[in-house]
Amino acid sequence: MKRKKKLSDNSSLALRFHLPTFITLTFVALIPLIYTLRLSFYDFKLSEAGSANRFVGLANYIRLFRDPDFYNSVSKTFIFMFFAVLFEVIIGILLALALNAIPKVKKLFTSLTLIPMMVAPLVIGLMYSFYINPQFGLYTWLVDTLRLPLPTNLTGDSFHSMIIVVIMDIWEWAPYMGLVFLAGLQSIDAQCYEAAKVDGASNTQIFWSVTLPLMRPVITVAVLLRAMETFKEFDKPYILTGGGPGNATEVIDLYTYRQAFVQFKFSYAAAICIILFIVLFLCGMVYQRVAMQGDD
């Protein structure tokens, strides 16, 4: 009885504190999303006057599922996600182990590691287009001078364009993974290592059967978070490749952007937005469950 009273007491108090945020979010996020949903059942194009009121039901969604360019962008997103996150995890773990092992000037190294993720993604795109420029880029010069067995015209063909788009993302986020994993490593109880050492385990054995299993929750959280963020990839490929050559690096956000703000097919873009929102909302629920589990 008392408990119940306390809860309802809380509710009205909580409500007052929550109100500003939730009213704001209703106006800036919920209503726009509902508007998008409504839009996706119409056939609104900038090119046709009066098309805003033409109800077409599920036609946009049906067209979407038959659109090879949509499938292209989905597959590019997944290719990008898979390789970017994979290498970010591998490099991140190595970096974390190295940072954890050094006894001094840890702070300086950590600060330097922080740099890439703080550089605006747009600037990263520009920076790379300067760095790998086939005529005067430092990278091109290094490859030529040192006769390294590496390609130089990276944005010229589809295969290498995708590689460089992935590399930019690894550049930005692998150090971040390193710092997250470092935090994970530092929270491992030293007793676990000692017990393993007493049992005569080698360093490699300790890594595979003590460190890695204990790090699993942290790795899972980081991988999920990064995987979801790859759906937001826009700035770097926009400025470096523009989705090209052709549509070789046209990830989902670039494709949606082009449908909405280059071709001005608002309703069609709205249908893509709704699909994207549903997918990410579900991923978000999974993330929340996993992340909160690690909390307990």
Binding site: L25, P32, Y35, M228, Y257, A260, F277, L280, M285
Partner: peptide, 22 residues
């Protein structure tokens, strides 16, 4: 409430950009 927040937190920018623009 926290699901509501999470939904907005993970929404790709482009998804909000379209309706906000219009």
């Amino acid at each position: 409430l926290s699901n509501y927040l999470l939904g907005t937190r993970f929404t790709p920018v482009v998804v909000l950009a379209l309706p906000l623009y219009l």
